[in-house]
Nucleic acid binder design. Structure first.
Lengths: 237, 237
DNA sequence: CCTCGTATGATTGTATACAATTATACGAGG
DNA sequence: CCTCGTATAATTGTATACAATCATACGAGG
């Protein structure tokens, strides 16, 4: 339609700044840094072999993503992500994914629907074979298709952010054949609701899909994803 | 509880970068720049009397906020905000404000509830007097209290972002005594549901509150808020 | 021994210089 | 006249130098 939206990733990975951004993002989400640990511009720069300039720019972005907090003239501190944050995100996402499915029902294109059908089909195949890596990939892609199909760059933007935020935790969760299969069956039902132009049902199913995903994650021990991160404890006097 | 969360604004207004960020944000939301207009680092820097460094950092943040799009080695282009974006945001917000009200019901503190009661009381007073500026202020604050009371930094962060995003449009809308009064009455009902620990009702009321706000905005002519911005038209061949 | 002020060092904030990349203009060749 | 390649200019990407701010240590004074 309009060729303005040929947008690549919001943050390219091929500039130094982009690399710093993605590296720090990964490290923070991985739990490499303690919560409230101070990140120094020179130190990070030296570790990655770059000057302060790209590091600073990456810091500003990470701040807006909520991963670090910058106190002016003082320093950058890791915010981290707690179990409660993950829970909150899933609750928020459950609502927004529902809305997304509703809108996608009204706006999905033929091409998108075709890719979605292929996605579900392939996922079924890989689930039977136990190819966990591919299942995770297809799961990601399924949701992305949904985001793109909703025809709302605001909602798409939000959901992609959240999606990336919990990606690390989620990948671990999907490494579980039972849930992988169940998840894909839910995808299929969502897709069928969309094909049937049943927006109410699509919304409800997508909503429940998120809740199921979260509950499965809790059941399998969400905390394992954070085993290497110390829980924040009340500082004793 | 923990004193880590004494966070000030995510982007301070007293550094050059902060000033550039807020200035560009305002200008973009105000429609000073055409959609898809290219922003040049030197030009912006000269206009504001600063070097490229703070401008670049501000650009990175604006990109993450979705207001501009940066194409590597090429330039920064204004994304702008369309009427559809505003509509989408209100639909998204209606869901999230509902969730927020639900959580606030479970987590609001005595102090927050007191400020909320004072807020509603004052708003009633100013509405009767026709003090539009104060009504707008109190309206903003009411929602902020709600955001802070929900006890979820993820949700609070999201809602504050959206809130700021549509603030300019909204201020114009509230400059309307009828809606100001109705809006405040809705605030009161939400508050009472929270006081009665009726989370279901609080959610429903907050949800409807957003929808009403949006519909009122449309009725009064959302487009007026964008009278100085050209609508994007399909480029003819 | 404690308190406060100053000096010093460390760290962030900003400006500028230079490198890399991209867009444009122009001319040679067909 | 058109196409393509090269040169040039403009713009972004990065590194570094300098300024401003903040934290710490240390010593004078009480």
């Amino acid at each position: 339609m309009n060729n303005y939206d040929v947008k690549q990733e919001v943050t390219d990975k091929y500039s130094l700044r982009g690399r710093v951004f993605h590296k720090l993002r990964e490290d923070i989400l991985n739990g490499k840094y303690e919560e409230h640990e101070e990140l120094k511009e020179v130190t990070i720069g030296e570790e990655l072999g770059v000057s302060r300039t790209p590091v600073r720019e990456a810091f500003r972005q990470l701040e807006l993503e909520g991963l670090i907090q910058i106190i002016p003239n003082k320093g950058a501190y890791v915010t981290g992500i707690t179990e409660k944050d993950v829970k909150d995100i899933y609750m928020i996402r459950s609502l927004l994914e529902g809305l997304c499915a509703r809108w996608a029902t009204e706006h999905i294109t033929k091409e998108q629907l075709e890719e979605m059908e292929e996605n579900v089909y392939l996922a079924k195949f890989h689930a039977a074979k136990g190819h966990m890596e591919q299942i995770a990939e297809l799961d990601n892609r399924f949701h992305e298709i949904l985001y793109e199909a909703c025809n709302s760059k605001m909602l798409e933007h939000q959901l992609k952010d959240f999606h990336a935020y919990v990606l690390r935790v989620r990948r671990k969760t999907l490494a579980n054949q039972v849930r992988g299969t169940a998840s894909n069956e839910e995808h299929e039902k969502i897709m069928e609701a969309i094909k049937a132009h049943d927006a109410d049902n699509a919304e409800k199913l997508a909503h429940q899909h998120m809740i199921n995903a979260y509950e499965n994650m809790v059941k399998n021990g969400l905390h394992e994803a954070y085993e290497n991160k110390k829980l924040p404890s009340e500082p004793k006097a």
